[in-house]
Amino acid sequence: MCRPAHFEVVYAINPWMDPEKPVDTALAVLQWERLHDLYLSLGHTVDLIDPVPGLPDMVYAANGATVVDGRVLGASFRNAQRRPEGPAYLAWFEQHGYTERHEARHVNEGEGDFLVTDSFVLAGHGFRSDVRSHQEAQSFFGRPVIGLELVDPRYYHLDTALAVLAGDEIMYNPDAFAPSSLKVLRSLFPDALPVSAADAAVFGLNAVSDGLNVVLPEAAGELCALLRARGFHPIGMDLSELLKGGGSVKCCTLEIRH
């Protein structure tokens, strides 16, 4: 995770960002700290990367890399404003002893567009990540990568349209995907939880699950009820200030899979 000490919205690279809308950085830090402390209370280890002045979106740690089996695939950002984040995150992994690192050749925005189930790496494209990054990830991780085309600009990253709950159990917003990708999802994940447009619109799918506890935006009320019915323990969080930059729970969380 990365403390949003320098968080602000001074440019617009997704439909959620409006530089004319006031941002309360102190409130963003407070909301982030509550998420950080929640992870600790649930028994998780949280590593921190130092925020870099001039990189206001660095708080969205999920975009910084993808880590599978201790192997680190670095991120390469499409937008110039975020490009320095990739080397900063890769340097953190080098400093912390991760020897298997790969500097991306093609644009990929980390776990924004790479989500890992037991059987697959699900890979989004259409707005940010280059489809060529899918083969690059497959070669590096040695796992099958399933490409999924996103079609709604509000859900510009895969982690705003789909979340992994446990194993090969997922939830997703059907409206966010091209018909061909929706067909793939229905074939591979017939028991997936479909999420309503209303819950998707409050970033309900930008969630983090440890297999039991599902941390998600508290505004996704209907989704919380559906998760309880499936045996999960949903925990709602208010990250409304960070949503002004186009991110929520998952965006703030990079999972390190050893």
Rank of each mutant, 00 (worst) to 15 (best):
Q81S: 14
D191E: 14
R83V: 07
L254A: 00
C224G: 10
E169F: 02
D69C: 06
D50A: 15
F93G: 08
V195R: 05
L188K: 07
F77V: 00
M1D: 08
R105V: 13
M17S: 11
A197N: 13
Y98R: 05
C2F: 03
G110C: 03
F93D: 12
R34W: 11
L38T: 15
C251N: 06
G211N: 08
A197L: 13
A200W: 06
V131F: 11
E85G: 06
P51Q: 04
A104Y: 08
L150S: 09
Y60S: 05
L148A: 01
I13V: 15
R154L: 14
A163M: 14
P234N: 04
Q135F: 10
L205K: 05
A61G: 07
R105P: 01
L55P: 03
Q31N: 07
P22M: 07
E100R: 15
E222C: 09
L48T: 13
A12I: 03
A62L: 05
A91W: 11
Q135V: 12
G112W: 01
G97K: 05
T66S: 12
R186Y: 04
K21S: 14
H157K: 03
D210F: 02
E94A: 13
P234Q: 01
Q135E: 14
D57L: 11
H44P: 09
G147K: 13
L73G: 08
G142R: 12
G86I: 03
H44D: 08
V9N: 12
P179A: 02
V215K: 00
V164F: 03
E100C: 13
Y172A: 10
L243N: 11
P51E: 03
E255N: 01
P234G: 05
H96M: 05
F189T: 00
R101F: 08
K183W: 10
H125E: 06
V67P: 02
K183M: 12
R228S: 12
P153V: 09
P51S: 04
H106D: 11
V164E: 02
A201Y: 05
H102C: 12
V202S: 09
P22A: 13
A225C: 12
T160K: 03
A80M: 06
A62E: 12
A200S: 15
G142W: 11
D24W: 04
T253N: 07
V68A: 02
G246A: 07
G167W: 10
S248F: 00
W16T: 02
Y60H: 07
V195H: 07
H233M: 10
V23D: 10
P56A: 04
G110H: 01
L188G: 04
G126H: 09
D238Y: 02
A65G: 09
L227M: 03
G204A: 00
F127L: 08
Y155L: 13
R105T: 14
D175V: 04
G74N: 01
